[in-house]
């Protein structure tokens, strides 16, 4: 029979064995996304500069068309800007991203991929619209740079699984 524990009693080997087993069971039942470490690595690889982290506000699955084209709309809020993107699966296995920034401005929008893949960069128009086409599936992160001469932080989204 197990003696009652005092508050200060350290864990014994059986306690630790039970806790280790419980950790393994929890991971089996509710595993983190397989790419969670990679997502964190992608966002941490950004140079350490002044950043405004955009948080996911909402996600809509707009629908699958004939099972080939899937469309998702994601909205991210940062202090300085809102970034809305629509991700369209193309029939050829690539992705098109239609984006919109509010408040709108002509700025550089960068789509970062895990190393060693290079970033893709486009300019938004004055109303804040931009298009990134022919994007491969996989992890990516949107970085919205400040306008030239504007003293504002970069807006960065979390890593997205495209």
């Amino acid at each position: 029979m197990t003696a009652p524990y005092s508050a200060d009693q350290p864990l014994d080997d059986l306690d630790q064995a039970i806790l280790d087993q419980l950790a393994a069971v929890l991971t089996r039942l509710d595993p983190p996304p397989a790419d969670l470490d990679d997502r964190v690595r992608l966002v941490l690889a950004l140079d350490d500069v002044d950043r405004d982290v955009a948080r996911l506000r909402e996600e809509h699955l707009v629908g699958a068309v004939r099972g080939t084209e899937r469309t998702r709309t994601l909205t991210f809020d940062a202090e300085s800007r809102t970034v809305m993107i629509t991700i369209v699966d193309r029939p050829d296995g690539l992705v098109r991203i239609d984006g919109w920034l509010a408040p709108g401005a002509a700025v550089r929008v960068e789509l970062r991929h895990p190393a060693p893949d290079p970033s893709q960069t486009v300019e938004s128009d004055a109303s804040g619209r931009f298009v990134l086409d022919g994007v491969p599936h996989g992890l990516a992160q949107v970085v919205v740079h400040p306008a030239r001469g504007e003293h504002a932080p970069q807006v960065v989204t979390p890593a997205l699984a495209l």
């Binding site: 983190p32 969670l36 470490d37 996911l56």
Partner: peptide, 30 residues
Amino acid sequence: NPLLWRVARAQGLAAEEAADVVQTTWLELV
């Protein structure tokens, strides 16, 4: 990451929300 994932899930977040929260946490850490 496994601990932070568990903490976010314990707050009642959906999987995708929890994954974003874990990323944001690391960005804040840097």
